[in-house]
Design a protein around this nucleic acid. Structure first.
Length: 895
RNA sequence: GGGCGAAUAGCUCAGCGGUUCAGAGCGCCUGCCUUACACGCAGGAUGUCGGGGGUUCGAAUCCCUCUUCGCCCACCA
């Protein structure tokens, strides 16, 4: 029967919720993760699924380890993004936000958010996220907004906020300023236009190179490098600005690169950040020649270009310059163009007044702490990037010319022009007591990130000293994608340090990869190459989705998924869940409702197989725990897989079957005396253990199976069960080795069977001859296992083979131990000779290279003792194997 | 222009403080409906570990270099 996750997952999730297990347990040491709040408008995509599954694995792991696990969920109001969504809807009605007016528009956004804002929260539940939903926050909650305002005012009081008049990145589509981080670089094929500016004295012209000819209307100078011999003679002279007709000076400035273009740079102070700096140094005029939505405008713009879009204007201006013979040449030019991270519109540098945060004082101590190792980034390779950004941090433009967000709490008195920041809306001017009616608030809102950078403490009630804040700040692990390292992570570290008494909000930043398609393109809605995680949940279950995301991505690496073949992509997870379910069916069938514990059985009744699997279980506990502690979630998942499937199911369960009465298989004499209690206890222990270890990765199926284990009290949930601790007394290296030999013997017999194409219906007779370290007792104890798993009729274990049976196949292993399978009539001497001599030659070759190493003086003297000893042991075993093989070949009469 | 990462079986990836390390899953081939599981069982095949140099007793694994793809940062207009 196949496992069907569909009815299971929702009901299990409901049980967790009802039991309240996602809320941190009292009186335990907290472990805190704050979610990277998705935008309220978001619907779950596979990137969210990856991000949140990782967090869920970590939080579930720590919860089972007994910590008071707090995973704080919530959403971000996402100023520009959300406003854009609602504006798009308005547009469909033929309206703009200006038609509605500010108040009505904001109202409209709220309605939208109230209606759809919990979509992604509900979706996170479907993939199993164990967030503490009782503490869900939204960045525009009244309490949260209070924190934002408090932070603004404090920074104001500390003189870390200032009004800056400078060229910033402006999105002509979103109609707002952007921060440096929000204007993304995109390599673009463009042109470099070489334009002639005639000299005023009529003695010729100078040629400037530009990628944005339309900005020439705003030129107020031409700059050259003072060191440039070509240009030096022109300094101080004047040129006539084409089309506009005004006269502009040729000035000298260090920033001009002698090597680039013509060496002459047009200077447009109002539309280029560099040129603005030049303009300031040289006291140039700074005329704006475009409107906020990117249309040409202003005194200097000729009538036929007024209101023309910047890119159309570019064409028209070039045409006109062409006609006037002022175009020197147009070169193809690959360069980087900044685009709005929200709408992809080419950003226009624009001179304006904005609010800025001085970042250097905030960054410095936090960078110092980083360098001192007080918090870490994994994987480490992001260290340099982070360090460099922090080192060269620039002031942060926090004002946005939109309406959806936290209004900037800066007020201006109409009477006395006093400007101040206020925690509450003022009744009167604090300086001249001017009436409220004359006081104006700044019309802009704050950058979304100016609220989310407070997430680790504003969510817990700051600025009040709440019990939550005391308990859950500082937190521990922050899991996110590298894309928002600067937007969010770095700023959280700074705000945490600055406002929370120099205490950083977390100790580890875990940066995971990006989910991409098979062409390595980022999955996105616009490309249509996405995978809807909820489709996957419907088809294969949340566990399968989680399995693929966790087991399929090593630390920090991108995850490549094929959106065109969900079956192949998610089958491993589905298959594994099914396997677990079936192991469970078997285990439950054997336990018959009885509780079996290791304590209730006599250790002396352990068989070799028992000792082996118990020892393997200790190894898996240690390894999985260590992997999770090191954030190697993939390793942890795969190790559990190996244990459950290859060790427990393929070997232990198969080995142990005859010990159960229910089985119809013939029980050999050795097993008959035992009533199977021991095997049941071992089975129960191992299955219980692997369910616990796997629970963080595949919580649904493990909880479902765990609930079915005998003796479960109704209120008990795996989600809050104890993480397994290794039991040293069950570690058994000897059993590992001995059972390993039994496995090898079985595998050899199986190989022989396959090689000689013996159908499974035919039971074979086999003999094992143990030699060297392999003792007869090892094989005797598991003789039954060998008989069954190798599908034998009988097995002899003898000290010596005095004669060679005709028609037998041989295999040599270990220290020269042998397996001999009787195959009368099926095997001819020739084939056996070929088989054995191939093996012989393989060994001989290995021995030769090994011998070369061991006789090499520098190897013996320079390599570590251990390595040499190991090699010697290996050599001995191989030599024994080879000698046995040689004897075989000889007695078979092989040439 | 800087910085970082990746290149290992047909596909997606592990392995990267050096000596059974050439692996996993999927796919493929050969047998099996062996009563927990055909979403399964057993047995197989497949790779000059991107190219070239170097260090070393020994290198997917360390160093240099080249090639090809990504990513991040950047005031060459």
């Amino acid at each position: 029967m196949a496992y069907d996750p569909r009815p299971v997952e929702p009901s299990i999730y409901k049980r967790w919720l009802e039991a309240g297990v996602f809320q941190p347990r009292p009186d335990a040491e907290p472990y805190v993760i704050v979610i990277p709040p998705p935008n309220v408008t978001d619907v779950l995509h596979v990137g969210h699924a990856l991000n949140n599954t990782i967090q869920d694995v970590l939080i579930r792991f720590e919860r089972m380890r007994g910590r008071a696990a707090e995973w704080l969920p919530g959403t971000d109001h996402a100023g520009i993004a959300t406003q854009n969504v609602v504006e798009k809807r308005l547009k469909a009605e033929g309206k703009t936000r200006f038609d509605l007016g500010r108040e009505a528009f904001v109202q409209r956004v709220w309605e939208f958010v109230n209606r759809t804002g919990s979509t992604i929260i509900e979706q996170l539940k479907q993939i199993g996220c164990s967030c503490d939903w009782t503490r869900t926050r939204f960045t525009l909650d009244p309490e949260y907004s209070r924190a934002v305002r408090e932070v603004f005012v404090r920074l104001w009081e500390q003189e870390l906020i200032y009004r800056g008049h400078r060229v910033i990145h402006w999105c002509p589509n979103c109609l707002t300023a952007l921060s440096d981080e929000e204007a993304e670089h995109h390599e673009t094929n463009g042109n470099l236009y070489h334009i002639r500016y005639p000299l005023s004295d009529g003695t010729g012209y100078v040629t400037v190179a530009t990628t944005r000819p339309e900005t020439m209307l705003g030129d107020t100078a031409i700059a050259v490098n003072p060191e440039d011999p070509r240009a030096r003679a022109y300094i101080g002279r004047k040129a006539r600005l084409p089309i506009v007709g005004s006269e502009i000076p040729i000035i000298a400035d260090e920033v001009v690169d002698k090597e680039f273009g013509t060496g002459f740079v047009k200077v447009t102070p109002a539309h280029d950040a560099n040129d603005f700096e030049i303009g300031k140094r040289h006291n140039l005029e700074m005329p704006l020649v475009m409107t906020e939505d990117g249309k040409m405008s202003g005194d200097r713009v000729p009538a036929d270009l007024q209101g023309v879009d910047r890119f159309e204007a570019r064409k028209r201006i070039m045409k006109r310059l062409e006609q006037e013979g002022l175009v020197d040449k147009v070169e193809q030019h690959r360069h980087s163009v900044r685009r709005c991270y929200r709408c992809d519109t080419v950003v226009e540098p624009r001179l304006s007044d904005q609010w800025f945060v001085k970042m250097k004082p905030l960054a410095e101590p936090v960078l110092a702490k980083f360098r001192a190792g007080e918090y870490q980034i994994v994987p480490e390779r992001w260290r340099a990037t982070y360090d460099q950004w922090m080192e060269n941090i620039r002031d942060w433009n926090i004002s946005r010319q939109i309406w959806w967000g936290h209004r900037i709490p800066v007020f201006t008195c109409g009477k006395c022009r006093h400007v101040w920041a206020d925690r509450t809306d003022p009744d009167q001017c604090p300086r001249c007591a001017g009436p409220a009616a004359t006081i104006e608030q700044d019309p802009d809102v704050l950058d979304t990130w100016f609220s989310s950078w407070l997430w680790p403490f504003a969510t817990f009630g700051w600025p009040d000293e709440t019990p939550d804040l005391k308990r859950f700040y500082p937190g521990h692990t922050l899991v996110t994608a590298p894309e928002i390292l600067f937007f969010w992570v770095a700023r959280m570290l700074m705000s945490g340090y600055h406002f929370m008494d120099k205490r950083l909000p977390f100790t580890t930043v875990y940066l995971h990869g990006t989910v991409r398609d098979t062409k390595h393109r980022k999955m996105s809605k616009s490309l249509g190459n996405g995978i809807d995680p909820l489709d996957v949940v419907k088809l294969f279950g949340a566990d399968a989705l989680r399995w693929t995301l966790i087991a399929g991505s090593s630390l920090g690496a991108d995850v490549i998924l094929d959106p065109n073949d969900l079956e192949t992509t998610f089958a491993p997870g589905r298959n594994f869940a099914n396997k677990l379910w079936n192991i469970g069916q078997f285990v439950l069938g054997q336990l018959k409702g009885e509780v079996q514990t290791l304590e209730s059985v006599d250790r002396r009744s352990f068989t070799l197989a028992d000792r082996w699997i118990l020892s393997r279980a200790q190894a898996v506990i240690r390894e999985v725990t260590a992997s999770l502690e090191q954030f190697r979630l993939d390793e942890a998942a795969k190790r559990c897989f190996e244990f459950a499937w290859n060790e427990l199911a393929d070997w232990y369960v198969e080995a142990v079957k005859p010990r159960f009465e229910a089985t119809e298989l013939p029980a050999p004499s050795e097993a008959r005396g035992e009533d199977g209690q021991t095997a049941r206890a071992v089975l129960a222990y191992c299955f219980d253990t692997v369910l616990r270890l796997l629970h963080p990765v595949v919580p649904f199926i493990t909880e479902e199976m765990w609930q079915k284990l005998p003796g479960r009290k109704t209120a008990e949930l795996l989600a809050v069960a104890q993480w397994p601790a290794p039991r040293p007394e069950l570690e058994d290296p000897r059993a590992d080795q001995e059972f390993g030999r039994v496995k090898i013997a079985i595998e050899h017999i199986r190989s022989i069977r396959a090689e000689y194409r013996v159908t499974p219906k035919t039971r074979l007779k086999a003999t094992i001859v143990p030699r060297g370290n392999d003792k007869a007792a090892t094989f005797n104890g598991e003789a039954d296992t060998i008989v069954r798993l190798a599908n034998l009729e009988s097995l002899d274990i003898v000290d010596n083979l005095d004669h060679i049976a005709a028609g037998a196949a041989h295999a040599v292993f270990g220290d020269g131990s042998e397996v001999v399978v009787a195959l009368e009539g099926l095997v001819d001497v020739k084939q056996e000779c070929r088989r054995l001599s191939e093996e012989y030659e393989r060994l001989e070759k290995q021995l030769t290279s090994l011998a070369a190493r061991l006789t090499n003086q520098s190897f013996v003297s320079r390599a570590p003792q251990e390595v040499v000893a190991k090699e010697r042991e290996k050599e001995k075993a191989w030599r024994d194997q080879r000698d046995v093989l040689a004897g075989k070949l000889k007695s078979l009469g092989c040439s």
